[in-house]
């Protein structure tokens, strides 16, 4: 009897396995999706005087270190959707997100809900990755492992409420009101930063975002982020931005180019060339002192094996002032580093 039962079970499983493959979910009610990444790296600063180049992540010199584990949940039912994304590890905590009042950290990358008011108009509110800039916190979203000066000194997250209207799949406009300071879970006093993003896709493969964030507390940043997949193998990205701190307190301007060439199905080579200049004023950036500039060149390879990406990278920075130390410990205008990272996305 037991054998017959087992055999029946086997036949049933075999049949249902095939049956189960005969359905494709085509409704808009997507299942709960779990996504995320983990990343780890080794970095060596050529002058062996600690970590000198002020990249947001990959900050530990001569150390096998961790980035973060990033765990996200998202679901959309009908017109309503949510995203909740938490991270654990230096990249997701102290290196990007301020700690809470008791020294704890909420580790939030994204926490928002959204609702499609119409087919073209979407309302989203919560704590969201910033709409400004080319690079992001998640290592999955960046080609280079170290980050640009523009990213490091710009906003990471903006809590607020925004409306996005899609005129077509080629043009959309976002406008929103955000908390008075960047990267904080709560406002210090007001919700008075205005943010806007105009998206255009002039030709197939070319996207451009013109961004503005302005507020009396947070200052004003105007940003252009664009990328063009010119051929199947060659992509060119560009990020240009200028930031003015409140009350003429200084700021920065910069431009970064991101040419990338896929040399095979699994290997892509890329260069990031950046020019970053600080304005005169009180603001001290993570970069050169006020009124100075720096040029940074980062050669990166992405070697993919399924969900795993190896990222070897060499970076050379040269500033107008002696912001770095050389191997002898003397002030230097130049610094260099090597890093290799592994990023697993799921």
């Amino acid at each position: 009897m037991k054998k017959v039962f087992l055999l029946f079970s086997f036949f049933s499983i075999a049949a249902f396995t095939v049956k189960a493959q005969d359905t494709v979910k085509t409704t808009s009610d997507a299942p709960l999706v779990i996504y995320g990444s983990v990343d780890t790296y080794y970095k060596y600063d050529f002058s062996d005087k600690g970590s000198q180049i002020p990249t947001s992540f990959a900050s530990d010199h001569n150390s096998v270190s961790i980035g973060m584990i990033d765990l996200g949940l998202k679901k959309k039912v009908g017109k309503a959707a949510f995203v909740g994304e938490l991270s654990f590890g230096p990249r997701g905590q102290a290196q990007s997100i301020p700690n809470g009042p008791n020294g704890d950290s909420f580790h939030i990358q994204n926490l928002y809900v959204s609702y499609d008011l119409t087919d073209k108009l979407n309302l989203t509110g919560g704590y969201m990755a910033t709409f400004i800039g080319y690079e992001v916190i998640s290592p999955v979203g960046n080609f280079n492992y170290s980050t640009s000066y523009l990213f490091t000194n710009g906003p990471f997250q903006n809590p607020g409420v925004k409306l996005t209207y899609a005129f077509s799949d080629k043009v959309s406009l976002m406008a929103g009101i955000f908390n008075d300071t960047w990267n904080n879970y709560t406002s210090t006093k007001k919700v008075n930063t205005f943010g806007s993003q105009l998206f255009v896709s002039p030709v197939k493969g070319w996207t451009a975002y013109l961004n503005l964030a302005t507020g009396s507390t947070s200052g004003t940043e105007v940003d252009l982020t664009t990328a063009y997949q010119i051929t199947d193998a060659f992509k060119l990205g560009l990020n240009g931005a200028t930031y003015s701190a409140p009350h003429d307190g200084g700021g920065f301007s910069g431009v970064a180019l991101y040419p990338q060439l896929a040399v095979s199905k699994t290997v892509t080579l890329g260069l990031r060339g950046e020019y970053f200049k600080t304005k005169k004023g009180d603001l001290l950036t993570l970069g050169p002192p006020p009124g100075q500039n720096v040029k940074a060149f980062t050669f990166t390879a992405n070697i993919k094996s399924g969900p795993l990406t190896f990222i070897p990278e060499i970076r050379l920075d040269h500033g107008s002032s002696t912001s770095f130390l050389n191997h002898s410990g003397d002030p230097s205008k130049s610094a260099g580093q090597f890093a290799v990272a592994a990023v697993y996305a799921f």
């Binding site: 995203v83 994304e85 990358q109 990755a129 979203g141 197939k204 493969g205 070319w206 997949q229």
Partner: peptide, 27 residues
């Protein structure tokens, strides 16, 4: 996956199915 955790088309990434094996893993 974009910065907000949402899925979005890769600009310029569309490919005829006959050539998709060049962009996708075997699985």
């Amino acid at each position: 996956r974009n910065r907000y955790g949402s899925s979005e088309p890769v600009p310029g990434g569309d490919v005829p199915l006959e050539k998709a094996s060049a962009k996708l893993s075997r699985v």
